[in-house]
Amino acid sequence: CLCSQPSVTRTVQKDGPNKGRQFHTCAKPREQQCGFFQWVDEN
């Protein structure tokens, strides 16, 4: 991610068109995240 740490892969849980879709995001706690976000299928 943007803070030079490994990102984590998560899955959208919220109902909607992206439910079940995976994405990479910053591994830090929400209030400390660098803002990195990337869909797995758009690499």
Rank of each mutant, 00 (worst) to 15 (best):
1 C>L: 00
1 C>G: 00
1 C>V: 00
1 C>F: 01
2 L>E: 14
2 L>Y: 13
2 L>I: 15
2 L>S: 06
3 C>G: 00
3 C>S: 00
3 C>K: 00
3 C>Y: 02
4 S>L: 07
4 S>V: 02
4 S>E: 03
4 S>T: 07
4 S>A: 05
4 S>P: 03
5 Q>L: 15
5 Q>T: 14
5 Q>D: 05
5 Q>K: 04
5 Q>S: 11
5 Q>E: 11
5 Q>C: 15
5 Q>N: 12
5 Q>G: 04
5 Q>V: 15
6 P>M: 01
7 S>L: 13
7 S>K: 04
7 S>G: 15
7 S>R: 08
7 S>P: 13
7 S>W: 15
8 V>S: 07
8 V>N: 07
8 V>L: 12
8 V>C: 11
8 V>P: 04
8 V>G: 02
8 V>A: 09
8 V>E: 07
9 T>Q: 11
9 T>L: 12
9 T>R: 15
9 T>S: 10
9 T>E: 02
9 T>G: 06
9 T>D: 02
9 T>A: 11
10 R>V: 09
10 R>Y: 10
10 R>L: 11
10 R>S: 11
10 R>D: 14
10 R>G: 15
11 T>D: 10
11 T>L: 09
11 T>S: 12
11 T>V: 09
11 T>C: 07
11 T>E: 14
12 V>A: 13
12 V>W: 13
12 V>G: 06
12 V>D: 15
12 V>H: 09
13 Q>P: 05
14 K>M: 13
14 K>R: 14
14 K>C: 08
14 K>I: 12
14 K>H: 13
14 K>P: 05
14 K>A: 11
14 K>N: 14
15 D>G: 06
15 D>C: 07
15 D>E: 12
15 D>R: 08
15 D>P: 13
15 D>S: 11
15 D>W: 03
15 D>F: 03
15 D>H: 11
15 D>L: 06
15 D>V: 08
15 D>I: 12
16 G>S: 08
16 G>K: 03
16 G>V: 03
16 G>W: 01
16 G>A: 04
16 G>Q: 04
16 G>Y: 01
16 G>T: 10
16 G>I: 02
17 P>V: 06
17 P>Y: 04
17 P>D: 10
17 P>Q: 09
17 P>H: 12
17 P>G: 03
17 P>N: 05
17 P>S: 09
18 N>D: 14
18 N>C: 14
18 N>E: 09
18 N>P: 02
18 N>G: 05
18 N>Y: 10
18 N>A: 07
18 N>V: 02
18 N>R: 04
19 K>W: 06
19 K>L: 08
19 K>V: 09
19 K>Y: 10
19 K>P: 01
19 K>F: 13
19 K>D: 03
19 K>A: 08
20 G>F: 04
20 G>A: 04
20 G>V: 00
20 G>K: 02
20 G>T: 02
20 G>R: 01
20 G>E: 04
21 R>F: 00
21 R>W: 02
21 R>E: 02
21 R>C: 03
21 R>G: 01
21 R>V: 01
21 R>M: 05
21 R>Q: 06
21 R>K: 15
21 R>N: 02
22 Q>W: 05
22 Q>E: 13
22 Q>Y: 07
22 Q>G: 07
23 F>C: 09
23 F>D: 00
23 F>Q: 03
23 F>K: 00
23 F>H: 05
24 H>W: 14
24 H>D: 09
24 H>S: 08
24 H>M: 13
27 A>M: 06
27 A>L: 00
27 A>Y: 05
27 A>S: 08
27 A>G: 12
27 A>T: 03
28 K>S: 08
28 K>T: 00
28 K>G: 08
28 K>L: 10
28 K>C: 04
28 K>E: 03
28 K>W: 01
28 K>N: 09
29 P>Q: 15
29 P>W: 00
29 P>T: 10
29 P>K: 13
29 P>L: 07
29 P>V: 11
30 R>S: 13
30 R>V: 12
30 R>W: 08
30 R>G: 12
30 R>T: 15
31 E>D: 15
31 E>R: 08
31 E>P: 15
31 E>S: 14
31 E>L: 08
31 E>W: 02
31 E>H: 11
31 E>Q: 11
32 Q>V: 10
32 Q>I: 07
32 Q>M: 15
32 Q>K: 05
32 Q>A: 14
32 Q>R: 12
32 Q>W: 06
32 Q>T: 11
33 Q>I: 00
33 Q>R: 15
33 Q>M: 09
33 Q>H: 14
33 Q>A: 14
33 Q>K: 11
33 Q>E: 10
33 Q>V: 04
34 C>R: 01
34 C>V: 00
34 C>D: 01
34 C>S: 00
34 C>K: 01
34 C>A: 04
34 C>T: 01
34 C>E: 02
34 C>I: 00
34 C>P: 01
34 C>G: 03
35 G>R: 09
35 G>S: 11
35 G>M: 04
35 G>E: 13
35 G>P: 03
35 G>F: 00
35 G>L: 01
36 F>K: 04
36 F>G: 02
36 F>W: 08
36 F>Q: 05
36 F>M: 04
36 F>L: 02
36 F>H: 14
37 F>A: 05
37 F>C: 03
37 F>Y: 10
37 F>R: 08
37 F>T: 08
37 F>V: 07
37 F>Q: 05
37 F>G: 04
37 F>P: 02
38 Q>R: 11
38 Q>P: 00
38 Q>S: 12
38 Q>D: 04
38 Q>M: 10
38 Q>A: 11
38 Q>N: 06
38 Q>T: 09
39 W>P: 05
39 W>M: 06
39 W>E: 09
40 V>Q: 13
40 V>S: 12
40 V>L: 11
40 V>G: 11
40 V>D: 09
40 V>N: 12
41 D>G: 13
41 D>A: 10
41 D>P: 12
41 D>L: 06
41 D>W: 04
42 E>Q: 14
42 E>P: 13
42 E>S: 13
42 E>V: 12
42 E>A: 15
42 E>D: 14
42 E>L: 11
42 E>W: 03
42 E>N: 15
42 E>F: 07
